[in-house]
Design a protein around this nucleic acid. Structure first.
Lengths: 154, 154
DNA sequence: GTAATTGCAAAAGGTTTGCAACTCA
DNA sequence: TGAGTTGCAAACCTTTTGCAATTAC
């Protein structure tokens, strides 16, 4: 399923920086690497902590924020809201476009694709006179695990 | 199309407060009224300003926030993200469930309904073992007006 | 009369920014 | 060498909170 492997995307990151006359600093490198190391959604703060926990590795919060913005502008990562008020990011490595289904009990996030829904969205946009740039579809519910365990909690 | 008229929902607000042993204060009344007066999506700050602009009417920011939370808990309004980092609210008066299509250039928000998409969502959730509680579908693009005027702006 | 509410100002939480020191190319 | 980058701390913005005064019921 991978569209591009880690090496290729790393190279593209370098090219992207070069094209914009930006420098590949140690901090950017570490942030990039760490962001692509996880397959989870993460907050800027979480990434900051991960880097701090890694022995000796310290990158300032400001640089984390600045670099995440940079990565998003370059299309290497995308941001979304986790529904609890936090901004979370995910990298695009090996991800085709997908939407999310989120468990309201445990916060688990699964990803899915549905071409029929995609097609209908384009149709809706056209109907309203919009040209569709992107969309966000988030399904929220209770996952199987939580339904079996917690049942009717809170 | 209205599910409930303004009078009816106003009454329900009173009942809701009563049921929770809360008081119908002048401030709550004004906030409620103003929130239902507009059919646009609004930020807490915007509502605060509206009330301030209205001659003599002043409600503190704190009370605006507290009351909006209260109204959302009661199901009288719902909140969402406008995609620019702001929390925006909309009242539910006369609104059936709908999704949003947002213009990335001018921030305009339109609402639509599509039963086919709704049905497919339920199917997706079932496939993944989730029971669907709710969903958010946001289409983002460029509206007809902006496409005609601005064209390829920055 | 009394519990609930308000306004204020301070606090909080997340993100951005100015600036001097530093570093990649 | 010099444009771009970093870290720090202060600034920002939105939202929340503690508390004394006030108000609805």
């Amino acid at each position: 399923m991978a569209i591009m492997d880690q090496t290729a995307i790393r190279k593209r990151f370098g090219e992207y920086l070069h094209a914009r006359s930006l420098k590949l600093t140690g901090q950017r490198d570490r942030i990039f690497e760490r962001a692509f190391e996880t397959h989870e959604h993460f907050t800027p703060e979480a990434l900051f902590d991960w880097l701090r926990e890694a022995e000796g590795t310290t990158v300032s919060r400001a640089t984390v924020y600045r670099t995440l913005t940079l990565l998003e502008e370059g299309g290497f990562i995308v941001s979304m809201n986790n529904g609890l008020g936090d901004v979370v990011y995910e990298h695009i490595l090996g991800h085709e476009h997908h939407d999310h289904i989120i468990c309201l009990k445990c916060g688990r996030i699964d990803e899915f694709q549905n071409t029929e829904i995609e097609a209908l969205q384009i149709e809706v946009a056209r109907t309203w006179g919009y040209s569709l740039v992107r969309h966000t579809l988030r399904l929220e519910g209770v996952c199987g695990t939580c339904r079996l365990s917690g049942a009717e909690t809170g």
